[in-house]
Structure formats: structure tokens, C-alpha cells
Design a binder for these strands. Structure first.
Length: 256
DNA sequence: ATGGTCGGCAACCGA
């Protein structure tokens, strides 16, 4: 079972990249974030033609999540629940005993911005969501653009980023608390080396060439599932293409 | 400190 995640930054603009990638890497599940499209305009046909089922929730211009899968999920839902459920930031799908949660965590904008507080709160709400819906003994996988570099080794220039909304000590604590609900970072499980990144800012030059990136996309699995993770890797290739996304594809393989 | 580049969408906002 291959599970992958990709922040598309517009599923329509990256459609060819995603379809080519599906064809090449043959994942069972691909979670996408920032699809940036209303549901009625989602390019469903091309995915169906490629043999995939798609569960999606989007809006105009911003956010939007999709779970692309070879089999039809038993159950699908969107959002954290409650007020400001953020349905275009969280997608859930169950495949048999496997529970997949795909999130596009709020970026936070600035440390002083109210969206940063919203981001910290989002991690608390998400932990509660896990508490209410699952137990850490179940096979749960949480993937997506989580907008947090958990450790210094997850950014090329950590010392300069102490006040960045994706690395500040408070956001790392919030993230760690939610991870502490019962998740294992399966990418780190297979890669202890530094210099592994999933995001390369294209507002700056040569970030990919000089490997100046951030590891802010993640695959996190509960222990019983993590135990079955045979490999995880980052595919940098889409960054080298003509119309790259700033994010890469992150893959995890499970012997289930 | 600033600006750099994208995508959506039609002026800027978000990243």
C-alpha cells in the first residue's frame, strides 16, 4: 500500500504533473492540498480515466483538499467539526481498517498575525479530533502540508528562522503535542540524515539546486501502522519540471 | 529590511 501527499498549489495548473506522477509511481492513495478549485470545477474526469476515485472539498482561490484512491473509500468526511470546521482543510477517508486524514494546516502568515494563533489552536483542535474519532491502537495515517518543520534539521537555515510561523518554538510545541497523540514520523523512521526537504520557496533563486528547503509535508502513522512502513521518500522531480509546484511529492510504502 | 515568483482571478491576496 503506497500513500503519497502533494501540495498541488492548484490541481488544474498541475493536472498533467499529477497524472504523470500517478502513472509513474502508482500510489494507492494520493492526498492533495491547495487544490484551489470549487467542487463543480474539479477536474474529476481525468482522475477517473486514470482509474482513481476522488473525494474532494474545495472553494474558490484558496485551500481545498482531495483524496485520490484506487478503491472507493468506505467513509468520507470533511472538516474538524464544530464552528469554523475548515472543511477545505481536512479530508478523511476510511479504506477498510485504514484511516486516512489529509490536512492543509493554516500557514499562520506572521507571528503577530491572528492567523498564527488560529494555527496553534488548529493543532489543539486536531488533537481533540483524533481523540474523539480514533485510538492510537487503530491504523491511522495523518498526512499533508502541515506547515511545520519539527526540528532544526528540517530547515536549511534554522538559526535564521526562529520567528518563522513554520518553525517558531510555539508552533513546534503545538505540532509536537498533536503528534504526541500517538503518531510516528515514518519519513524520519527511514531517514535520519539531514538535508531532506519537501518545500522549496520559489520566491528565492536556486532553492532546489542549492537544496535550500523545508520539511513541512509529513506522513505520520500510529505505531501499529508505522511498524509496517517499509520505505518513505521525497520525489524532487516535479520541482525540476517546467511548471513546478513549490512542494514535492512525499511517499510512504506500507506492507498492508 | 526588502523583494523575489507563482496561481487565481481580475485588484490584490496568500504562500
Amino acid at each position: 500500500m503506497r500513500i503519497a501527499t502533494f501540495n498541488a498549489n492548484s490541481v488544474r495548473a498541475r493536472l498533467d504533473i499529477v497524472l504523470d506522477w500517478l502513472n509513474k509511481h502508482d500510489p494507492d492513495v494520493l492526498c492533495m492540498q491547495e487544490t484551489k478549485v470549487r467542487d463543480e470545477e474539479f477536474p474529476l474526469g481525468p482522475f477517473q480515466d486514470a482509474g482513481y476515485h476522488v473525494s474532494f472539498k474545495g472553494q474558490k482561490s484558496y485551500n481545498g483538499v482531495a483524496i485520490i484512491s484506487k478503491t472507493r473509500p468506505v467513509k468520507v468526511s470533511f472538516g474538524l467539526g464544530g464552528r469554523n470546521s475548515d472543511e477545505t482543510r481536512l479530508a478523511y477517508a476510511r479504506f477498510g481498517a485504514l484511516h486516512v486524514i489529509n490536512t492543509y494546516v493554516p500557514q499562520g502568515r506572521e507571528i503577530t498575525h491572528e492567523m498564527y494563533q488560529y494555527k496553534l489552536k488548529w493543532f489543539r483542535r486536531l488533537k481533540k479530533y483524533f481523540d474523539q474519532k480514533f485510538t492510537a491502537r487503530m491504523k491511522v495515517v495523518w498526512v499533508g502540508d502541515l506547515n511545520v518543520a519539527p526540528e532544526a534539521m528540517d530547515i536549511h537555515n534554522a538559526v535564521q528562522q526562529a520567528k518563522h510561523v513554520c518553525y517558531h518554538v510555539d508552533v513546534r510545541r503545538s505540532f509536537a503535542s498533536t503528534v504526541g497523540w500517538g503518531f510516528v514520523d515514518v519519513f524520519r523512521m527511514h531517514h535520519s540524515e539531514p538535508g531532506c526537504y519537501t518545500f522549496f520557496d520559489y520566491r528565492q533563486r536556486n532553492t532546489l539546486k542549492e537544496n535550500k528547503g523545508w520539511r513541512i509535508d509529513h506522513v505520520l502513522a500510529t505505531p501499529s501502522l508505522a511498524k509496517k512502513c517499509t520505505d518513505s521518500f521525497i520525489d524532487l522531480e516535479p520541482r525540476g519540471l517546467e511548471r513546478p509546484s513549490d512542494h514535492t511529492f512525499l511517499v510512504a510504502d506500507f506492507a498492508i
